[in-house]
Write a protein that binds this DNA or RNA. Sequence first.
DNA 1: TCGAAGATGATG
DNA 2: ATCATCTTCGAG
Length: 206
Amino acid sequence: MMKAKPLPRTFYDRATLKVAKDLLGKYLIRDSSQLFCAARITDVEAYIGQEDRACHASKGRTPRTEVMFGPSGVAYVYLIYGMYHCLNFVTERLDYPAAVLIRGIEVTQVTRNGVVLSHTTRIDGPGRICRFLSIDRTLNKLDTTLGQSLWVEDRGNSVPKTQIQTLPRIGITYAGEWAEKPWRFCLSAPTLSGHVNPKRTRTPAR
DNA sequence: TCGAAGATGATG
DNA sequence: ATCATCTTCGAG
């Protein structure tokens, strides 16, 4: 396999909004014995600090949230609704709980059980992403700067600011005023004219 | 094509 | 009881 060159901790150890925007266009890499996958990151959300009522760490340091207080560049993976996993990357300095949720990707390269698939597939939704990439809580607390199993790398493509859409975050209406913060960032697909219905996304069965 | 409902278990 | 979700099903 190709040599991993993961983004270093200095990338994640910054203001979460910057990290979130800078993750757009970077490549999410999943490397396991069953699966190698490279996917361009197209949709992210920022969760920032104890003040942010939408952030899991708003209730303070608990067994579940302690990972967000730890070193940046570490994966935070949790189970939601009893059946789906969500992938986040921890950001900011030690003891400041924050992370970026990966919400959309564009798969450019997949090898599953030795079978190579190379047509581009868009996957919308954090639960679908984790299912497609075989990500579950065994990867929680993984240090992604090591470049093993799961990491993000820069493949040299830049993203013009004009292609970044800024939106409120999804599914957090309980969070009051925090629900209105424009902390979701999407890459619009410039060459596609018309609307892509997210419900049409299909992920192959495993 | 749409909205509503149900699945399912960790969490605090 | 709630939830940073997704799929199925039935109405139109």
